[in-house]
Design a protein around this nucleic acid. Structure first.
Length: 320
DNA sequence: AATGTGAGCAACCGCACATAC
DNA sequence: GGTATGTGCGGTTGCTCACAT
């Protein structure tokens, strides 16, 4: 028996999401948390399939996402993890807070792959390309990476996945620096020019306390000059009022719910959270959406308290 | 200014896995 | 154990933009 499609697709919208759809989805998730994606579109009043909603949320709307190009450090992590895990993008993404598998996959395919080839490194095997294989035409067909060659494509055998305890992460991440990676590191330091973006190291991702708006701004001192302007403008943006209305409008909360809601919301730096969502929901953002894609988001808008996100796994459940 | 081309990215598709019944 | 359902994952597609001609 064939598997049923996730939805009947009849009358469902496809393609890019509109601001209105995003608003509905965000509002719904904030109100109800993540549950039963198949039911989400119906309950949220969206003409999308649940899968599409999930993707939109996890890849784009989630408040704990970092945006912008991967930092040099993150690129190194990706390269090294790829050498160990192959194309298991979700596994790789799980080691990079705030990054999605889709984002990493795209970055790999569009940036890192080319850079590695330029450097004479096979992006699949992570081994040096033979002398004349820098010619694209002579590159051998893609082979599984080192470990891939010894196991089935899917997880039929044990994956040698580095398990990292949260508290040990900074040191543990260094352990990813395999010999291959060390050489890669040297190459990158000398000629591997990552995209010119402010580097945000994981330890720079601060967890601003509620009510301490200054904390979040200090976390972005490494960001480009554009950060302050966008941050300021959004925090004072009248449409923040809109977001408040949005969040409260069609959710008729009991007092208890309201209390829970607001106390949970205080887990974030409210200003940043509201600003970031505001940015997503602001029509101006959508008007210039395509430009924004090319210009990384202000990192300051993405400095949600990762510790909280990580510790509660699904932050939305915590809200309710 | 108009057109062609390539790059980058969001989103879709189909399969696999996990779980409930 | 078999089936149905929900979700996750990786590969691929197609749209948009920037740049070259």
């Amino acid at each position: 028996m064939g598997r049923q499609p996730c939805c009947d697709k009849v009358g469902l919208k496809k393609g890019p999401w509109t601001a209105e759809e995003d608003k509905k989805l965000i509002n719904f998730i904030l109100t109800n948390g993540q549950c039963c994606w198949r039911a989400v579109p119906k309950l949220a009043g969206l003409l999308r399939c649940g899968k599409s909603c999930r993707l939109r949320w996890t890849n784009y709307l989630r408040p704990d996402l970092k945006r912008g190009l991967l930092s040099e450090y993150e690129e190194k992590m990706v390269i090294d993890l790829h050498a160990q895990l192959g194309n298991r993008w979700s596994k790789i993404a799980s080691h990079l807070p705030g990054r999605t598998d889709n984002e990493i996959k795209n970055h790999w395919n569009t940036h890192i792959k080319k850079k590695l080839k330029k450097l004479g490194i096979d992006p699949v095997t992570h081994k040096p390309l033979s002398n004349n294989t820098t010619d694209q035409n002579q590159i051998k067909p893609e082979q599984p990476p080192l470990q891939e060659q010894e196991q089935d494509h899917h997880e039929s055998s044990i994956i040698v996945e580095p398990e990292i305890k949260e508290a040990e992460k900074p040191e543990a991440e260094d352990q990813f620096m395999t010999p291959l990676f060390e050489s890669m590191d040297a190459i990158m330091m000398n000629g591997f020019c990552t995209d010119e973006v402010p580097i945000l190291e994981p330890d720079e991702i601060l967890a601003p306390c509620a009510g301490d708006a200054s904390t979040s701004s200090t976390a972005t001192t490494t960001s480009s000059s554009s950060s302050s302007s966008s941050s300021d403008s959004y925090s004072n943006n009248p449409s923040s009022k809109f977001l408040e209305d949005l969040l409260l409008s069609d959710s008729e909360w009991s007092n208890d719910n309201n209390n829970n809601y607001y106390s949970s919301m205080a887990l974030w730096d409210d200003d940043d959270f509201i600003s970031s969502l505001d940015m997503l929901l602001n029509d101006d953002y959508y008007d210039s959406d395509r430009k924004q894609q090319q210009q990384p988001f202000d990192a300051s808008l993405n400095q949600y308290p990762r510790m909280i996100m990580d510790s509660s796994e699904s932050w939305a459940y915590g809200l309710f």
